[in-house]
Amino acid sequence: MAITIEQLNDFGVNTKEGLTRCMNNKNFYFKMLKMGLSNDSFEKLGKALEDKNNEDAFEAAHALKGVLGNLAVTPIYTPLAEMTEMLRANKSADYVEMYKPILDLRNQLLALI
C-alpha cells in the first residue's frame, strides 16, 4: 500500500470520519477510496461539462458528491458540492475551469493509492 492515513490527512481528507463510516476497517476504507476515486463519473462529469450538458453534469456531480462525502474526501467533496448546487440551480459558470483542480487532485490521489 503506497499511501498512508497520515498522507491522506495531509491532503485534507477527513480520514477519521471516513474510517468511522467504514467501521474503522482501514483496508476496506482504502479499497473504497480506490473504488470511489476511480469511478467513471469523474470522466462523465468532465465530458458533460465540456459538452455544456448541465443536466448530465449535475447527475454525475451529485453522484460523486455522495461517494466522496461517504469517504470524507473533503478536498474534493467541498468544491464538488459547490459545483453540484450551482448545477442544480442551473447557474452559468466556467465549470470546465472549476473542475480542473478537482480532477487534478483526484488523479493525484488515485495515483498514490
Partner: peptide, 9 residues
C-alpha cells in the same frame, strides 16, 4: 444504490 462505493460502504 447506483454508486458501487456508496453501496459497498
Amino acid at each position: 444504490e447506483d454508486m458501487p462505493v456508496n453501496a459497498e460502504i
